[in-house]
Design a protein around this nucleic acid. Structure first.
Lengths: 155, 155
DNA sequence: CATGGGGCTTCCCACCATGGGAAGGTCAAG
DNA sequence: CTTGACCTTCCCATGGTGGGAAGCCCCATG
């Protein structure tokens, strides 16, 4: 099985399979005499495992951890659950952050006429919360967590 | 006002101010004879405007658009509102995506004993949804939007 | 047997924002 | 005049992913 077939079978692009190999997420694939990478059904299982973990937004470092646990038949499920719950917590944090942004912006937008007149509370707010001070809505404009952890996968 | 003072006054790092200049988000700053960048109070206002927009997760391209609208005293508020609502829609899409991930993973985790035994439904699911088929929960495992639009700002 | 097309290989570049750091010039206070 | 804080430009890294070039390989068809 060459890399193209493995890619189709696993749902991971050939590009990414090579990348995963370079960063050590998967061990180096076997090679034909001509230098082509070869994959076994077991290799494809691993790749599929990785893809599903990535579908949950799990960053690669954590995927590496999960693959290790998966392959260790004696792992305590406690460890797996800890990793999963950490992931859930980070997703929740990210969701909360985005939700705060969304709510604040949606509220601003709802205050905007959206007509041909130039007057616009959205721009007024962006230009300086200090000006339009004292309206009760939580202005965001501070408190950002500053994470990253992707979550950006174009399948 | 040099770049350090402008950075403190605007809340944007000096690094990022220079970067914004190179990508054309802000016009080139004035320079002293020695080559130091100089900033006026107006420049700092613009930088603050940018920071606040970024706090809403607005990507740079969109920020550029907003700055343009802000500086055009005759813009119709309709245009500004459209941009804001587009942003809200993208935030919502991202939130929905993360929430789907979070819910699916949280459900899996809740099914895991989390003790010293190796048996783990989380790993079983990751190893192949086809095996543990037919459980009613929406398995995610498909349908990803694949966006990016940051939203990652460490203030 | 030759040729063509589709695969594979490696390598570099791009994205989006941001931070880190090196090497060297400048400014102001002591 | 020295010291230290600042400024300048330049390169590199992140996290994942895609694009593409240059070159080799394999198979099938004429």
């Amino acid at each position: 099985m060459n890399i193209g077939e493995a890619a189709r079978a696993s749902g991971i692009s050939a590009k990414m399979i090579r990348y995963y190999e370079t960063v050590g997420l998967v061990p180096p694939a076997g090679r034909t005499e001509a230098g082509y990478r070869t994959y076994t059904a077991r290799d494809v299982d691993t790749l599929r495992f990785i893809r599903r973990a990535r579908d949950f937004g799990v960053p690669m470092e954590r995927v590496k951890l999960l693959v290790g646990l998966w392959q260790d038949k004696d792992r305590p499920s406690r460890e797996v659950k800890e990793v999963a719950l950490r992931q859930v917590a980070e997703l929740e944090a990210k969701i909360a952050e985005l939700t705060a942004m969304k709510d604040a912006l949606a509220e601003l937008a709802s205050a905007c006429h959206g007509d041909n007149r130039p007057d616009c509370p959205i721009l007024r707010d962006l230009a300086g919360a200090s000006c339009s001070a004292a309206h009760p809505a939580p202005t965001l404009h501070s408190a950002k967590t500053g994470e990253r952890f992707g979550g950006n996968r174009s399948a």
